[in-house]
């Protein structure tokens, strides 16, 4: 059978090879993503419904559909090193609208987990970890707020780890179990000196 040819010989070569992405593709990546996310990413038929309703799409180059494709093709490096990965607000609109009943949001979360294993994670995420490690709160109490609470007839500290700091040790043990605080400190130091 005659093969249709294109003028560009390199493109011809690529098109002849149905797996021309294979040197960048890691099939294990697809499996790992599906396992962490608990969704069958390979069922995605690229309709674009997810991107159409995504609040981050109109104001950046972030395209959730593209990340779904990367999940399916096993394009691990391309997915995990793209700064757009961190533009998902986790609003779950795409997940509620996907006609294949997939969970693109959870695919993003899985990719972020895998990126974090390579120390690819924005500093603001790690600072939340540090705050929780020292106070139990991601957004801790402060003196202005203590005064405001008092004026409202409330206790200066809420009955959380703020009022009962003895509970912080348990939180630190959980985080230390995973070595997360240490990792957060190290990465922040590498980035910010």
């Amino acid at each position: 059978m005659a093969t249709k040819n294109y003028p560009d010989p390199i493109l011809n070569e690529k098109l002849r090879d149905r797996y021309y992405h294979r040197d960048q593709s890691n099939p294990e990546f697809t499996k790992e993503i599906e396992k962490i996310a608990g969704t069958m990413a390979h069922m995605c038929f690229q309709c674009g419904t997810c991107t159409a309703g995504c609040p981050s799409a109109p104001r950046s180059s972030y395209r959730i559909r593209e990340f779904m494709r990367r999940a399916v093709l096993g394009l691990e490096d391309e997915a995990l090193t793209d700064p757009d990965l961190w533009f998902c607000t986790t609003c779950y609109s795409c997940t509620d609208r996907c006609p294949r009943d997939l969970a693109p949001t959870d695919v993003i979360m899985a990719m972020r987990n895998l990126a974090a294993r390579r120390d690819i994670v924005p500093v603001n995420f790690l600072k939340t970890v540090q705050a929780i490690y020292s106070s139990g709160h991601g957004v801790p109490n402060n003196d202005v707020n203590r005064a405001a609470r008092e004026k409202l007839g409330m206790t200066r500290d809420p009955p959380t780890t703020s009022m009962y700091p003895e509970y912080i040790k348990g939180i630190q043990k959980i985080l230390d179990h995973y070595g997360l605080k240490e990792r957060a400190d190290r990465i922040i130091k590498e980035r910010e000196g």
């Binding site: 972020r112 974090a116 995420f125 939340t128 929780i132 991601g138 009955p159 959380t160 009962y164 509970y167």
Partner: peptide, 18 residues
């Protein structure tokens, strides 16, 4: 609920390690 902490923040924590 004495001794409760941050939930923890699903965006920050979930993204790092579920």
């Amino acid at each position: 609920l004495n001794g409760a902490s941050c939930c923890p923040a699903p965006g920050a924590f979930g993204s790092i390690d579920l």
